[in-house]
Amino acid sequence: MLETFSNKSILITGNTGFKGSWLTAWLLHHGAKVIGLSKDIPSHPSHFEAANMGDRITHIWGNIENLATCQELIQQYQPDFIFHLAAQPLVRQSYREPHTTFTTNVVGTLNILEALRLSNHPCTAILITSDKCYDNLEQVWGYRETDRLGGKDPYSGSKGAAELVIRSYTASYFSSGDSPVKVAVGRAGNVIGGGDWACDRIVPDTIKAWSSDQPVLIRNPHATRPWQHVLEPLSGYLTLAAKLANNSLLNGETFNFGPSAEQNYTVANLLNSMQQHWTNAAWTDCSNPESLYEAGLLKLCCDKALHYLGWKPILTFKETVALTTQWYQAYYSDSREVWQVTQEQIACYETYAQERQAVWTISCASPATS
C-alpha cells in the first residue's frame, strides 16, 4: 500500500503541526516528494523543527485562509495527493478565538476545495476533520459516519460546518465517474505520540512538567477518551488515499479512524500508565466544576473502515503509551537525533502492522452513502 506514494508529489497542509510532521516523515520514509503548506510553527519546541524537516521537503509559508495562496500552490505543483490537515485544533483555544477557529477550519477547507475545482487536475484529496464533528450525546456506543453532525463548542461546530462544505463541493463538482479529482474525509479523535508540544493537551502538559521534575495539574482526570498513537489514524489516511486513488466507489465517502472499542481509558489511566515509563513522575487532580464544556465520553465505530478499506488499529493501549513516552525520553535525554527516533518508531509500527496483518483485501462493494 505505501509503495503507492513513492516518487509521487504530495501536498500536506498543516505540515508543521503534530500530525502533519509525522505524516511528512512517514511519506519521506517511502520516497514521496512532499510539499508542505503552513502559516507558522505552531509550538516551540516542535517535531518539525527538531527533526529538520524543513530541509527535507519543499516548504511553503502561507495561510489556507487565503484562496489565492491555495490556488497558486495547487496550480503550480499539481500534486498527485493532498492531505489537508491545517486547522485550529484546540477546543479551549476555540473558546478564546471562535472567529479564527471557524475561519481556519471552514474557510480554509473551502479554499482547498475551490483550488482543486479550479485546477481540475488528477488528484486524490484526503480532508481531515475530527471525531468532534459529531453531535455528541455522550452515548456509550461509537459514532458511525451516518450519525448527526453538530458540536456544542466552537471547535466542534467548525468541524461539523467544514464537513457540510466538503459534502456540497463533492456532490456539486467531484461526483461524476470521470472527475479527475477524488475526495474523501478522515475523522479521528485524540491522538498522542512523541513530538506534540501543543498547549492545553494532556501529554504535552504532562511531559513539560515531568521534564522539569514538576507534578502536572489535571483538570478532568475522569474524562474518557479513545486514546490512540498518532501513527494509527495516519495509517488510516494513507490507506484511504491509496484505495481511493484506484477505486472511484470511495469518492465522497467519510471514514472514522479510531482505536478499538475496549481502548477507551480515562485521563487518570493514561497518566498512571505513563508514570511507569518516567522516573519521579506525579500528577495532581485540580478539577474545576466551572470549567468550560468538554465532552466526557466520545468514541468512534470504525466498522466502515474495516469493511471497505481493510483498516484496523493495531496498537494496544500499553504500546501506545510506551511509544509516546519513549520518544520524549529520547528527546530529553538520548543522544540520538529526533529524525532517527521518528524513523525507528515508524519502522516499529510497520513491523507491528505486518505481524498483525492490519491491512486486508479491499471490498469492491460500494459504501453506503455517509
Rank of each mutant, 00 (worst) to 15 (best):
L27Q: 00
H277Y: 15
L127Q: 04
P367Q: 01
A125H: 00
P180A: 11
G177V: 14
S176A: 13
I35H: 06
Y237D: 01
K299P: 03
L11S: 03
Q78P: 06
T58K: 14
C364A: 09
G157F: 10
P45W: 11
Y308L: 04
H30K: 12
N256I: 00
S21I: 05
E232C: 10
S370L: 07
N15P: 03
Q263Y: 08
A242F: 00
S335M: 13
A261D: 06
S248T: 05
W339P: 03
W327E: 02
P367A: 01
L73Q: 04
D213H: 15
A32L: 08
L28Y: 02
F102R: 13
Y349E: 00
E319V: 06
N269F: 12
L306W: 06
R201P: 06
G160D: 05
A368G: 02
C348T: 15
F18C: 05
T369H: 14
D205A: 11
C302W: 02
N15C: 07
K19Q: 07
T324R: 05
W339A: 14
Q76S: 13
Q275C: 10
S156A: 14
I60G: 03
K152N: 07
K159L: 03
K318L: 12
A295W: 12
A368C: 09
D285F: 02
H29A: 10
L116R: 12
P221E: 01
Q75T: 14
G258H: 03
W197G: 03
T69E: 04
Y77N: 06
Q343R: 11
W327Y: 09
S260W: 11
P221M: 11
R219S: 15
L298C: 10
T69L: 06
Q76D: 10
G186T: 03
S94K: 11
V267F: 01
N280Y: 14
D334Y: 04
I82E: 01
L73E: 01
P289E: 00
Y349H: 08
K132R: 15
L110G: 09
A86V: 05
